[in-house]
Design a protein around this nucleic acid. Structure first.
Lengths: 100, 100
DNA sequence: TCTAAATATCGCAATTTGTAGATATGTGTG
DNA sequence: CACACATATCTACAAATTGCGATATTTAGA
């Protein structure tokens, strides 16, 4: 868990929003047709629509957030779903509280 | 209190360290000759020595952190002392906890 | 196996950041 | 007032980030 790396990931409005949106997928995304639930998060396409940026940009952002361990990808067929890594997010907050 | 702005300020190792060092000036800086205490924080020169970067760079960093409300400057004669803005730092942590 | 859809990666232009040296601005002292 | 010192600001340039379109990769299905 790298605080600086996480801070970099979260120093961009869109990436911060993605993390927030993923906290409540039902409220922020339309249901996915093929899967009936959000257990593994939300697919790239839906995140892209919500954010209004290009597919490549969103894919890059998600990759960056994943490298910072903030989100976890799961592949279902041709879709990749991303969900929050609550464990790391909690560790991050606690580390900040202590360390900052 | 702008979370994104604070995250930007804290996405650099040196700036993060400055905030940490200022938490315990006695442990991290030599005493200032003219003032006998750290009530208003630490002067730029001492922060510069600790960080090992140029005067202009440190001054720029401190300015950036001040704009993000993380630190508070106080002028004493020709010295500017910087101390932590504990109120904002606490607000920041709490906002992250809620908001992230 | 050919195709289409979803995602990932590459290459690029524009913008921002990191860092330094040079210079300007304030401030105490002779 | 002139000088020295602490700090701030300006200028410059290399490196990183933003964001896009084009292309590659993966996978389901005809």
């Amino acid at each position: 868990m790298e605080i600086i790396e996480i801070n970099k990931a979260l120093s961009n409005e869109t990436r911060m929003n993605i993390l927030r949106w993923l906290k409540d997928p039902e409220a922020n995304f339309k249901p996915h047709e093929d899967l009936g639930h959000f257990n593994d998060g939300v697919c790239v396409q839906h995140i892209r629509e919500r954010a209004g940026l290009s597919q490549s940009t969103i894919s890059t952002y998600l990759n960056q957030m994943q490298k910072a361990s903030l989100i976890i990808p799961t592949r279902h067929g041709k879709w990749t779903y991303y969900r929050r890594n609550e464990k790391v997010i909690l560790e991050y907050i606690n580390a900040l509280k202590q360390n900052i």
